[in-house]
Design a binder for these strands. Structure first.
Lengths: 342, 342
DNA sequence: CAGCCTATTGGGAGCGCTCCCAGACTGTCT
DNA sequence: AGACAGTCTGGGAGCGCTCCCAATAGGCTG
């Protein structure tokens, strides 16, 4: 009578125990794969679970374990980017793939303004996730510090500065950029301009540094009049190109820190009557779908975005399992894909 | 002594009650904005909440209310698409925007294979979400039926067939396609081919139907030799174009059911020496970033993807609030953006 | 001033689970 | 045979919250 099959409500641990003729403890042990259960008891429980179609109530479990079995992927981005950046989609795919191996769930949180930031703070403060993945952080982003303070495991995709203390995974932006510029240099280009991303982001900064390094290797002093800063948008890339063309009409190559900006640059070059690649060679960064569709198709530095997603997830799961783990920093290689703009 | 400030653990309702000198019930009422609390008590509680930095434990709440305050966005897609389709990103943005108004959270679930489907089933069976948003369903998708059986509020973005019983929101695919074809007809094109999406998806089917309807309006019998089916990928679009060109070398226009396929078609046309738009006019669908970057820039039918995301969210929240609500079906308008391929 | 109603309040019960400990039951060793 | 170590087992306690009801405090009426 006490634990009758309650109509309309899912079966509980208790019900399974009763059905299997064992105690709650035993059922719990079986369900959680804990050791110390006889084969007979295990079989009985498994049968009862199957018959009743029992699924543990996560809220009840969470209440006592204070785990949530979910992590958050936080994307702090101004409106525009998630739309255009295949990078985020790829990272999401990677995270999801890795998570599919576990029984953790993924919460997606877009933080676009002050209000959404407060919402996130509350959310994390309420311990609704076991860990946080932070994608695309800026130098002055308040989030990492906040998360550290809340002592919640956090892994970044990308880093704030070259000396990022938090665990993070990032593409070899510096090496990738340097490789692109070397490639241009090797093809005899001499006035190689660069369109950078925002310099308050490490990606922006590092890719510019790669451009510099490749020059320095050749004992050429990088000429800052060949540098224009933009914001990873197409329009920004276009404006930067216009700017560069005005300043340095003699330029014969451009390395853009993203495909989208490169696409903008391409448009501008065309309007100025410069032929690509004859007059000006162009290289982008990301090797995204955009690169394949420009005319001519864009040579681009690819980063292993999906792999970044997978890797940050793995690091985070490790840190959740053992918060005392030392922070880890991984750099993933980039690859240059030559198409027709060089 | 009984409820001392427990070091390292977040404050509980009980602690707040003690601090404010009221009972648990009162604190609960204040925190949940329930009526029937005196101004004085409310103020005392609010002060205590602020002092202790109290945040309710969602697991405990969920255990008793059996609500989770979160919804799932399920994207059943084969590997390739999430990468290339800005559509999904836009929908996600819309959902997120709408959710930001509430204190609901968004779970993102990618279902790419049988295993992930089982995982989702378990997950929904465990009542880990209050509702499900289902994007891009195929006719034979087992998910909608499953969700209906589990009696969990569900809203679809897109529909399975024109007589979809579940609540859903979709773009006016038929009207948009018909509009595109009319536009082509109006410009004097006479042999208008179409590259369709998979015909087991309503989007594929409806856009083809629009192509047919526009012909029928003009009392022209749609000629099926002008129809080629592809799979929304670039390569597929390209192959379909090749096919069409072989079958109907006289074609003078192509309506493709997605920008990505149109991009593939464009490449193929170029390789066959057809000039666009002089020899062959081309229209795509989605009006995505790809459309702006093809050469020449692609005329395309835009769908309000972000708005779709917002709308499905609103419908779902309503249905969660009142599951007895009748199912609703909304069609959102498309817009034709003319660029240089027509 | 008694009597009755309403607005507010406190706190018991219970949501479904894990944790843990005491007890039962084996088998082995002396 | 008795003691002991190990293996399994059941179930009490408690996680932090909401729900609800009985109790209290005012306020109003006659």
């Amino acid at each position: 009578m006490s634990s009758r099959n309650r109509p309309g409500r899912p079966p509980t641990l208790e019900a399974v125990a009763q059905r299997a003729g064992v105690g709650r403890g035993t059922v719990s042990r079986v369900v959680n794969g804990a050791p110390g259960v006889s084969a007979k008891a295990r079989a009985a429980v498994e049968a009862a679970v199957a018959e009743l179609n029992y699924v543990p109530n996560p809220a009840a479990r969470s209440l006592v374990t204070s785990r949530t079995d979910s992590i958050a992927l936080v994307i702090p981005e101004s409106e525009s980017r998630l739309a255009s950046e295949p990078y985020f989609s790829a990272v999401i795919r990677g995270v999801s793939t890795e998570l599919a191996e576990t029984d953790m769930q993924l919460l997606l949180i877009l933080v676009r303004d002050e209000r959404e930031l407060r919402r996130l703070t509350r959310f994390v403060g309420a311990h609704r996730v076991d860990g946080v993945l932070l994608v695309s952080v800026r130098q002055d982003d308040p989030l990492p510090a906040l998360l550290e303070e809340l002592r919640i495991p956090t892994v970044l995709a990308g880093r704030r500065t070259p000396v990022e203390p938090l665990s993070h995974v990032h593409a070899d932006n510096l090496g990738g950029a340097a490789g692109a510029v070397r490639h241009l240099l090797a093809r005899g280009r001499t006035a190689i301009a660069t369109i950078t991303g925002p310099l308050d982001m490490d990606v922006g900064h590092s890719r510019l540094q790669g451009w510099r390094d490749a020059h320095v290797e050749r004992l050429v002093r990088p000429d800052e009049s060949l540098v224009a800063t933009a914001d990873f948008t197409e329009e920004g890339g276009r404006a930067a190109m216009r700017d560069l063309l005005g300043r340095r009409p003699d330029l014969d190559a451009v390395f853009a820190a993203s495909d989208v900006m490169a696409a903008g640059a391409l448009t501008e070059l065309r309007e100025h009557g410069r032929r690509v690649p004859e007059d000006v060679a162009v290289i982008g960064f990301d090797d995204s779908i955009v690169a394949r569709h420009t005319v001519p198709p864009l040579t681009s530095v690819g980063q292993p975005s999906e792999d970044i997603g997978r890797t940050i997830t793995r690091l985070l799961l490790d840190e959740i399992k053992d918060p005392a783990l030392p922070r880890r920093h991984l750099t993933l290689p980039t690859t240059l894909t030559c198409r027709e703009t060089t």
